[in-house]
Design a binder for these strands. Sequence first.
DNA 1: GCCAACGTTGGC
DNA 2: GCCAACGTTGGC
Length: 150
Amino acid sequence: MNHWLMKSEPDAFSVDDLKRKGVEPWDGVRNYQARNFMRDGMRIGDKVFFYHSNCAEPGIVGIAEVATDAYPDPGQFNPKGKYFDAASTRDNPRWVLVDVKFVKKLKRTITLKELQAQPSLAEMALVRKGNRLSVMPITAQEWSAILALE
DNA sequence: GCCAACGTTGGC
DNA sequence: GCCAACGTTGGC
């Protein structure tokens, strides 16, 4: 099983939103690297850290799991939507997503600051300066080290 | 709100 | 194929 971290801006979609909905399509990813992780790396049942970005206290706030295989993101076909991509066709869709299922909220936010302070987590893309990847793999060791901080 | 870092686009 | 310009991300 693989482990992942997915970022969301809580103003747009928070861990509480996921808790309320139960399952949600992770739409709007428009970055090839992130797409490739969802398409090629994710399997149903993989565990996901839910991360709040671009907010007062950025950090990991919950756990989710991958609920579907990757499938085409419908937003790319909607000319009126903000995720429309004129270069993508139904025969050959450019963007995919997976559904993500709520597992639990952490007891507290494990902040970015704490993660940056852990020597064992220094290799994570998340803590590297300027990183903008919104979907990234986490090693099993990193997963355990992060959970131990809770 | 600022701005550094990054990915993408498009002219050449 | 290079690279400048541009738009976006995301911490602060």
